[in-house]
């Protein structure tokens, strides 16, 4: 299944590349409204057509990719940054009060899907891309905490951990030297998956108006705008959706490929 890794990596690189390119160059300026050319189907001048303000959809997609990627990445960083240390701490003293508190806290967060968190934040502070980051990031925390706790617990039973304790090392040091490095592969794979889920969640949040606000372009927002025009301008709905689909598909393929590539070796070595 090497192929899925390469295809996935290629798609992800293309999307990221397009997002980065948009900082330097886009086919058409997306701030300039061109009402004369509004709602044009794909053509030579506008490869993916124009929207109801006459903006170039390809350019919008490229700029929108920035939002999606930024939100999803920061959310993964938040999830890992809090989740992994919490999971490691819980596993280091399994069954202790800290383990209990961390795991119950996790259960609690699991009861709040990111949409509900976003709803609460928006109800109090108003909408914005930061909401999406916080909401998705908070939801990522228990995902990483559970994953790292579960894997760390099985690593804690290994004899090399016992050997490290015989060598007088403390739980913190063992977590850093022995547990974390052996979790790295797992975290990379899960990080890819949460990244793709983050893209989906960001799109959904901005679709219902809880994410990035106009004029910042975002894929979900573009779909929301296209909805009322779908019967006569299906291209406006088609391309942002395809962009999301392709990005998520690419990340998932990459995640699966990474898992196949990294995991068996880990399994064989660590037995």
């Amino acid at each position: 299944m090497k192929a899925s890794l390469w295809i996935g990596a290629l798609i992800s690189a293309l999307v990221t590349g397009a997002a980065l390119l948009s900082f330097l160059w886009v086919p058409h300026d997306i701030e300039a409204l061109d009402i004369a050319n509004k709602i044009k189907p794909p053509s030579g001048a506008h490869l993916l057509g124009t929207d109801h303000f006459g903006r170039d959809i390809l350019s919008m997609l490229m700029v929108g990719a920035r939002t999606s990627i930024a939100v999803a990445i920061v959310a993964v960083v938040i999830g890992m940054g809090f989740g992994v240390p919490l999971g490691l701490a819980a596993a280091a003293r399994q069954g202790g009060w800290m383990d209990e508190v961390i795991m119950r806290g996790n259960d609690l967060i699991f009861a709040f899907p990111s949409l509900l968190i976003a709803i609460m934040i928006t109800a109090v502070f108003g909408a914005g891309a930061v909401n999406a980051i916080i909401a998705i990031g908070i939801f990522n925390i228990p995902v990483f905490a559970r994953l790292s706790r579960g894997a760390a617990l099985s690593l804690w039973t290994r004899d090399y951990v016992l050997a490290a304790r015989v060598a007088g090392k403390g739980r913190l040091r063992i977590s850093a030297e022995h547990i974390l490095p052996n979790l790295a592969n797992l975290l990379i794979v899960q990080g890819t998956i949460q990244f793709s889920l983050g893209i989906l969640a960001e799109a959904a949040l901005s679709y219902v108006g809880l994410g990035a606000q106009p004029p910042v372009p975002s894929w979900g927002r573009m779909l929301a705008d296209s909805q009322t025009m779908i019967s006569f301008a299906p291209h406006m709905a088609l391309f942002p959706g395809l962009a999301i689909l392709l990005t998520v598909l690419g990340l998932n393929l990459m995640g699966d490929g990474l898992r196949d590539w990294l995991d068996p070796r880990l399994a064989r070595d660590a037995r």
Binding site: R158, Y160, V166
Partner: peptide, 15 residues
């Protein structure tokens, strides 16, 4: 004091 354990596969950090 030192110790040698039973399982030759689990006794070493693979990394």
């Amino acid at each position: 004091m030192q110790v040698v354990f039973q399982d030759p596969y689990g006794s070493f950090n693979p990394r």
